[in-house]
Amino acid sequence: MSIQHFRVALIPFFAAFCLPVFAHPETLVKVKDAEDQLGARVGYIELDLNSGKILESFRPEERFPMMSTFKVLLCGAVLSRVDAGQEQLGRRIHYSQNDLVEYSPVTEKHLTDGMTVRELCSAAITMSDNTAANLLLTTIGGPKELTAFLHNMGDHVTRLDRWEPELNEAIPNDERDTTMPAAMATTLRKLLTGELLTLASRQQLIDWMEADKVAGPLLRSALPAGWFIADKSGAGERGSRGIIAALGPDGKPSRIVVIYTTGSQATMDERNRQIAEIGASLIKHW
Rank of each mutant, 00 (worst) to 15 (best):
Q97E: 14
L89G: 06
T262D: 07
D269C: 09
R118T: 13
Q37Y: 13
K32W: 10
R162G: 07
D174M: 02
K144R: 12
A211S: 13
I243D: 04
G141Q: 06
M115L: 11
M67F: 05
G142V: 03
L282R: 03
T262A: 10
K144A: 12
D155P: 02
Y44R: 01
E195R: 13
P65N: 04
R202H: 07
R159E: 06
A211C: 14
W286R: 03
T193E: 10
P172H: 10
G52S: 06
K232A: 02
P60S: 15
I278S: 02
D83Y: 00
T27R: 04
L74M: 09
V214L: 08
T69M: 04
H151D: 11
S264C: 09
D177C: 00
S80V: 13
T178N: 03
F149N: 06
A280Q: 13
K53W: 09
P181L: 03
G114S: 05
Q274E: 14
T178M: 04
D129L: 00
S240Y: 03
T262Q: 10
I243G: 01
T187S: 13
I256A: 06
M127D: 08
R162C: 06
P249G: 06
R41Q: 09
L223K: 06
L137V: 08
E145M: 13
G236V: 00
L188A: 08
S104P: 02
L47Q: 08
V29M: 15
L196Y: 12
K252E: 12
K190W: 11
I229Q: 00
A133F: 01
S68F: 02
M184D: 00
T139E: 15
F58H: 12
R59S: 06
P181D: 00
L49Q: 05
Q88W: 15
Q97H: 14
Y44E: 00
A235S: 09
A245D: 00
M268Y: 08
E164P: 00
V101F: 06
A132S: 08
D48I: 04
G141Y: 05
Q97D: 15
V117G: 01
E169K: 12
A276R: 13
D155L: 00
V258A: 10
Y44I: 07
T187N: 11
K71Y: 01
E26L: 11
G251R: 13
R92E: 09
F70M: 15
R273T: 13
E145D: 11
I259R: 00
E56S: 11
N272R: 03
E119S: 09
N168V: 05
